[in-house]
Design a binder for these strands. Structure first.
Lengths: 252, 252
DNA sequence: TCAATAGTGTCTGTAAGACAGTATTGT
DNA sequence: ACAATACTGTCTTACAGACACTATTGA
């Protein structure tokens, strides 16, 4: 029986040599991979959608921007690894918002050094403080998404970012995911600005208001109001139990 | 620089001992995982939704049904591994239909022998011949989905199956995915029976017909008709270029 | 007062769901 | 003839999109 220690490698080395995997496989015959999690962390800063990027301090892709991420540890699950990395990279414990698995990327050659399968996660968070620099020389920063898409991101991270953006845009249509970009309390206007930033479109405030307040159970009225700058104070809501929009909002 | 050969293991053995991964990671410091693909292959047989399962011939979970799958080879991508496994397990080369990544599952302990990350794929195929038995003693079979869900599937395959079914059900709402269950030519009635089998609901044939024929570019009229049993012959269609249903079909 | 934002009311076009009715086959 | 399936037309209701209008604040 294989165990997680040094001896383990020798077992696999001897068994793996020249063998072709077949149905009825035995995991002791496995070709080993590195498994990492990469994070697409989106937030709203100043009405503009931003993504968390780190600047690579080592080859390959030294000096290029990359999605934050790291190895899955031997004793932790994929979701737990994503949560840990999210806390580490943002510098915030128990990051509020939303975290879900996006997809896995494992083309041979995506990392020139060795075979790496990366499980990408999508995180949506309210405006967080400026990220601290990593423990090595690499710096971390919130980068406007439109600028990130023009950069030459490391590895296949441009595609992962594109997939994450598309997932976020699609899920806003039929879910209450927009609230993940806000704090625990928010106004209808806050939500509308989320949609406008993520979709890159302008929405009619009046129809948007009627639509969202018309879904029973979606929003809970706190009874309080909030005034920001000019204009009539807005009703403050909390998340309700209902998380699906039926019928969905459309982005044409 | 690590390379894919025997020497490679020694490199990792020495570097991995006792080290904790940190940001600014180096893939040479990786904790190794086995990476597999598991397949949720759905098809329609006799108007009922079936899933392809294999009976395990070895411990653990010997004698239990499991989703087909196998190791990703060192030189192939994840999608390629899924395509290869699909062809191997069904016994059909170039399986028609649809294949997409579903999600990845990597809880520690999901395989008691060692750490395995499985990248699950969802495949939709027209009715295929009875699968051949595997090269080992394990047998493969099309199992009605309702029965598969009552079985104690191996590992975490019950959850993977549930996720695959939910993905298929959701995607039927807003895509032309139902055509993946049919051959290259099909009738509106064929498509309706796909929806009814996957959703487990009955649909109004008249509104369904009007809805699907009303989406421009979705269906291409071959000009021919097909008669099955009693009733007026149905127009035969092929897939069109349009693959999204706007607005979507609803399953309430 | 004016500008800005929040929220309500109303109209119109479109589409979903229900279902009557016609068309074309096998038995 | 009758049953079964394919397809068409029509009616009602609901909702999206457009936009006039009222409400409440800061400057």
């Amino acid at each position: 029986m294989a165990t997680i220690n040094g001896c383990w490698f020798d077992v696999n080395l001897t068994r793996y040599g020249g063998r072709v995997t077949l149905p009825g496989y035995d995991p002791a015959d496995f070709p080993p991979f590195a498994v990492t999690v990469d994070l697409v962390v989106l937030t709203l800063r100043g009405g503009e959608l931003h993504v968390l990027l780190v600047e690579r301090g080592a080859e390959p892709w030294r000096g290029h921007w990359a999605l934050p991420g790291g190895f899955v540890r031997p004793d932790e699950g994929l979701d737990a690894a994503a949560e840990r990395e999210l806390a580490e990279e943002t510098g915030v414990h128990d990051v509020p918002g939303h975290l879900e698995q996006l997809a896995s990327y494992g083309d041979p050659g995506r990392d020139p050094r060795m075979r790496v399968v990366s499980v990408a996660y999508l995180a949506l968070a309210p405006d967080l403080p400026e990220p601290r620099a990593g423990t090595d020389a690499a710096q971390a920063a919130w980068v406007p998404v439109v600028r990130a898409q023009r950069e030459a991101l490391a590895f296949d991270h441009a595609r992962i970012l594109a997939d994450g953006l598309e997932r976020a845009r699609a899920k806003l249509e039929y879910s209450s995911l927009a609230t993940a970009f806000c704090g625990p309390e928010f106004t209808i206007g806050d939500l509308r600005r989320v949609y406008e930033a993520v979709w890159g479109a302008t929405l009619d405030p009046r129809n948007f208001h009627r639509k969202l307040t018309g879904v029973p159970g979606l929003l809970v009225d706190t009874g309080r109001t909030r005034t920001e700058g000019r204009g009539r104070p807005a009703t403050v809501y909390r998340r309700g139990d209902v998380t699906t929009l039926h019928p969905p909002l459309t982005r044409d």
